[in-house]
């Protein structure tokens, strides 16, 4: 299987997106479930969300650069 940069970046971004989304959901629901007597691992989710979120943000810059031409054409179509 051939693995190019675009594919690698997309796959890692996908994993980061998934983790950030799940931990964000845990952070949102944490206070409510704690009141209901079912505490979620909010502390772990908090730490993961912070670190993976910034990694996601950083890799997004690479992703945007790799797809800059396509993005430019989308903006042109808007104008």
């Amino acid at each position: 299987m051939k693995c190019n940069l675009r594919m690698c970046v997309s796959l890692v971004l996908f994993a980061l997106w998934l983790i950030t989304g799940i931990t964000g959901t845990i952070l949102l629901l944490g206070p409510l479930t704690a009141k209901l007597g079912h505490p979620l691992p909010v502390s772990t989710a908090d730490t993961l969300h912070e670190y993976f979120g910034f990694a996601f943000f950083g890799l997004s810059v690479v992703h945007v650069t790799l797809n800059w031409n396509a993005l430019k054409s989308y903006f042109k179509r808007l104008a």
Binding site: L5, F54, F57, G58, L59, V61, V62, L66
Partner: peptide, 12 residues
């Protein structure tokens, strides 16, 4: 791309 990777490293 190099600039993008540097930015990525800084943000991470």
């Amino acid at each position: 791309l190099v600039v993008a990777f540097i930015l990525c490293a800084i943000l991470t």
